[in-house]
Write a protein that binds this DNA or RNA. Sequence first.
DNA 1: TAGATCCTAATTTTT
DNA 2: TTAGGATCTA
Length: 819
Amino acid sequence: MGNISAILEGLNSEQQDAVSCLDGPVLIVAGAGSGKTRVLTSRIAYLLEKGGAPERVMALTFTKKAATEMKERIAAMVGERKARRLYMGTFHSIFIRFLRDYAPDLGYPTSFTIYDQSDSVSAVKACIKELNLDDKVYKPKEIQGRISMAKNNLVTPDAYRRDADLMMKDLHAKRPRLHEIYALYCTKCKQSGVMDFDDILLNMNILLARFPDHCREIASRFDHILVDEYQDTNFAQYIILRRLTRNEKTNPQGHDNICVVGDDSQSIYAFRGAKIENILNFKRDYPGCKVFRLERNYRSTQNIVNAANSLIAKNEGRIPKKCYAVGEEGEKLHLIRAYTESEEALLIVSRIIARMQEERAQYQDFAILYRTNSQSRALEEALRKRNLPYRIYSGNAFFDRAEVKDMMAYFKLAVNVNDDESFKRIVNKPARGIGGTTMMALEAAARSFETSLFKAVYHEGLDAFGLKNAAVEHLKAFCEMIDKAAQRVKADPADALARRLADQSGLLAAFKADTSIEGQARSANVEELLNSVAVFVEDRREEIREEMLADENVTEVSDEDLPVVTLDVFLEDISLLSNVDLSEDDEKDASNKITLMTVHSAKGLEFPYVFVAGMEENLFPSGGMMLGPAELEEERRLFYVAVTRAKKTVDLSYAQTRMRNGKHESNAPSRFLREIDPQYVANPLRRREEEDEDDAPAFGGGFKGFGGYGYRTKAKPVGSSPWGASGPVQVERRPAAGMPARPMAAPSARPLPPKEENFVPDSPDKFRAGQTITHDRFGRGKILEINGATVLESKARIVFEKYGEKILLLKYAKMRIEQ
DNA sequence: TAGATCCTAATTTTT
DNA sequence: TTAGGATCTA
């Protein structure tokens, strides 16, 4: 019992309540930085200390990283042995365990393999081709997305075809045969013995729905279910959870000890099928549920939390909660105004340098977040210019490399010879004289035999499809090589088999033969992959050894006692793992670096100093085509996530013009900047500063509103040289538009009239002769004429009510049009 | 079959 | 702009 108080110790009262309320449905609404993970892990530890059996606890996360971290923390509280027995992992990895058990019932081989998204897209593409559809109309990526959405919503191909609404939409989108692609894709996957990510959830549902016995059996194995990041669950996950808990239809005697943790304000994956409604409706779905709110933010300063609150308040449909910071007030948020994205980058970098000096901060304390990956380019450039170390978090950089994928395809094909995507990928890599014509014929044959490519090679009657003997020999040689490996999958250690495949395929040799820099890099990457297989085998063996040692009757485990860790195990592990770089170890120690990443990938992380770049309309919020209210709210949540990553300071930057898709683009500052209560911003956006960009008539060549704005007035950030001393061209030629013309200008004897406070000028390209205007110093006047080739050179002759006639350069003059 | 060249489409992506 | 894919040519 002493341990129990140890678990509760150091938790605040709300956290304690959330941890110790074990019976019945529980919703923990955990604001950013409120100690969510701590509560979840403590809760599980508490549960175990109270006598709960670890193997009867299912805990689901979205990432492997989250699962591993939590396991470690739980192990620290209750010991390795118990923690290890927990049924804890990602939705996908946990469900795969069940699916393997019951695969035959679902029409899959027990050894089914997993398609990642790119496999999935190319399989879809193959289906489109097979149906003779135009891939300009049926864009593989989009179709795959639609199929994915359908599966996430548990819409099978049949259901899809029967759904008038969906069919109507497709008709309108001019792709009425989408459902055929969907159906064919499913057939092919099944034929290949393959599930894509969505299938794992879909099939789990099918398993639970169509096989009540299995459903009961699985559900009865658990007394408690816990779910992390519940706000990001999709419909399929939602239904699975419903089926595993008490349920009148399928599971009337089941328990309803389901505890979900999440923050509706941080739901940012709707575009991928996440349903924020799941968390919003939890109370309704699980009557009698208890709700705990964790509203104390331990991470950020008050200013940051307050600013974030004021922002997210603009969203409707939220779970009411009032987050507050317990830390110090902190600095206000700071806006960085730049003219171009490269200047923006330079300003960010100088501010980082300044901060590092002022606060003795380290590189790793800084993160620069952005909406789109392409924004990293300018930032990298600026960082390199100033010689600052940085690292970019970007997707599966390693596993996205062609050579790594190739090698992986060999592994996959050995584990599952029917995996057609892998087959196609490597059949001629390295060159084996199996060209396009051969493959076309083989594919036609496989189609007509209704079998996989691999099996088709051994089928009778290939010549009918125009396959020459020589081609068939080549194919057979390839298949035999694969088959030899396939025979050994269950017998040989993964690392040995992987190495053999690399050698016997000739893939590694081909890369090694290439002495170019790229070639070297390729073979190094393949080596690294092979190495990672070895590391995996080693780790897993140690794990198993420890597990065996945990048994009281076992005192020693020799190497021979350990089971062989095989390639299929490695594959499953790897295909369900995402960003966790193979080189993560290097990163851990040698990583005093500035972090660059998208806001999405920053979720769950924290940094003392956070910069968010590209705070512009059309970029953040991203907008694009149609930005509906729901999408806008998601963007706002995304921005909320960005801001709440910061512990100490937040800097938000925007550029007036930015190179996008090869073109200069001008966008107004993001509306989100306006939505933050200005009392939390050091230099807030002035009222109409952001307007007049979009509807301004295009003038000259694409550069809109280059001068004439008051952006520079208060831009001086602490200790940095705001406009980039070493800055780009623009700095030189740009006039100090917003500065009072104190030093040089107006040598007239008369003192200048005071300028109007908070004057908001219109863009210089708006002015036309005849308009009545107000000038920030000279007051009302009328434009008599404007001349000059471009807006930047235009001069206006204006007669002012009080000051008479003057000629002003439009780009300097701060004026607004009256009425 | 490889290499050159042309064309086109560009958010976010826990699995 | 640029990356990736498709198509064309030796």
